[in-house]
Amino acid sequence: MEINLEEQFQAKIEQEIKIEPRDWMPEKYRKTLLRQISQHAHSEIVGMLPEGNWITRAPNLRRKVALLAKVQDEAGHGLYLYSAAETLGMSRDQMLEELHTGKAKYSSIFNYPTLTWADMGAIGWLVDGAAIMNQVPLCRTSYGPYARAMVRVCKEESFHQRQGYEIMLTLCKGSEAQKAMAQDALNRWWWPSIMMFGPNDDNSPNSAQSMKWKIKRFSNDELRQKFIDVTVSQTEILGLTIPDKDLKWNESRGHYDFGTINWEEFNNVVAGKGPCNKERLNARVKAWENGAWVRDAATAYAEKRANKKNNSTEAA
């Protein structure tokens, strides 16, 4: 019976029929999705912090409202994704518990500090650019609620990268100090951004299964290459230099070759030894703990009101 179900399931996947929450699915499919979607949600929420760091210091009102709206969107995206994950049978509070205890991971990029205003540009341009590269194929992922959440996310994200690039462009057309600020931000965010696509395909043990289940559509290396290929010309328009001596066009491959990624750094940051891991997690835990009395009070008030309503109905 089990084998039969599994075959039917895989057949649906092959036919591009979406899997919906109450459909039968292999336990491992459910677990893989739950891990991926909740990590994705955590990344959105933790990702609010590095940019949130500059909201109160944005250099003018136009930039301030754009940044505020962008960081708010990330909260929304986290929310859509938690909702999608909840359909797999874990509550949002449980997922947050896993984040707060360090059991669940989030994207390592957010463990780097935002030091200057140019970082708002570099994050929007590179980090959101890399995220979009990852996310567009996820709009067709095999699990219905995840795919629908991603459609909404991608629609909203489209202003994020433009917002970032516009900041970079303004800096690059500005004073020497501004241009240097932009270059410095590119230098610091480039490598972490291309690490966002995850380990090389040879070292990515879960990838094959995820591809078979059509959770993923492209491999880490394919997406990384695609990102680098489109980003080079964007960098040229800015007049900036990508901090990679080995970056050059390879005619025969039809792609840019690039230098070796420092996986040791990547693994360290994943393992908690990035510049801001502690601050990020502490900020989330603090917000959650400081909010406990607020959430409790709202629950208590709702219960009181519901009781009052019941009593008055009975009396009538």
Binding site: S83, E86, R92, R148, A149, R152, A298, T299, Y301, R305
Partner: peptide, 12 residues
């Protein structure tokens, strides 16, 4: 249907 969310009561 557009999605879901958490709230303490219907007004919220």
């Amino acid at each position: 249907h557009v999605g879901s969310l958490h709230a303490a009561d219907q007004t919220m």
